[in-house]
Design a protein around this nucleic acid. Structure first.
Lengths: 151, 151
DNA sequence: TTAGGTGCAAATCATTTGCAATCTC
DNA sequence: GAGATTGCAAATGATTTGCACCTAA
């Protein structure tokens, strides 16, 4: 159920941010933003590249990395180091929330955690690291993989 | 303050585990275990390699990776994906606890979090991922780096 | 004795970089 | 027009692998 023509708020938010901060809005960046603004699959750069190439066959992987890096610099994308070796990206909701990753199929989902503010306070107090940003994840086995790998 | 001759409990624990599970205790593995059993610096494989070579100059990086992987497989080491590109290891305490990482110098410290059991329950309930293991980290700026990078 | 382990060197794989050509503002 | 951005290809850096030799059990 994708709204093809009308810009969604998240799209527009990102486009405005790019303009406001002096970055340039290229067709490649626009296409990537439209692709990821409402994506909740936490894709890797490679996955973004593969999907983006379907509608923009000349785009390069370097540009994908470059654009994702820009969004991270703007605080509009959240890089997730959930498995060794690959970085996943959450462009939809760069605010603090938790993730669960399936040990079996690698799928990532969001979790709402009400206790995060307490954790942040406790951590700051205990370590002297001052204001601290959470990276909270859990691994388990997702319902789809349960029969295959109960561990 | 290193006890040179007497085996500490954690050393012995790991040695026993290796025997019990049918793995072989090689001199390289023993040296690595003695090096890391009480280490709280959360080193990378490369760092372990560098230190280990001081007392075992012929050891190879492949063996370091191999031994760390074995300890992870035994549940006796915890791999930490805290920054993209490198895996750090905690051999001292493979049980669930939190970490803080300094954005500026990369140093990693432990944090005790009493709320983890609640989080685990909340996450399991919300996602259907069943029993879930936490990977909880925070990033901020450590006291030593505060003057240099207040952000 | 013999599978598992070691060390070396080469191979992978994600990510980064150098640079000339090409665009956005 | 100027400087940012692109795309390609080559470079990097962490981790893995193939393989002949070795050694713990």
């Amino acid at each position: 159920m994708v709204k093809a023509t009308m810009e969604t708020p998240r799209d527009q938010e990102l486009i405005d941010r790019i303009h406001d901060t002096g970055y340039r809005l290229t067709p490649q960046r626009l296409a990537l933003i439209r692709l990821l603004a409402d994506d909740c699959s936490h894709p890797t750069a490679e996955q973004v590249y593969t999907r983006l190439r379907q509608e923009f066959p000349t785009v390069s992987l370097a540009t994908v990395y470059n654009t994702l890096e820009m969004l991270v610099a703007l605080g509009e994308a959240l890089p997730l180091d959930l498995q060794e070796g690959v970085t996943r990206y959450d462009v939809r909701r760069p605010t603090a929330h938790g993730h669960v990753i399936c040990r079996h199929c690698g799928r990532v989902e969001d979790v709402e955690l009400t206790e995060v503010p307490n954790l942040l306070r406790a951590t700051g107090d205990q370590t002297g690291f001052g204001d601290v940003r959470p990276r909270i994840a859990f691994d388990g086995v997702c319902p789809d993989c349960r029969p295959a790998d109960p561990g």
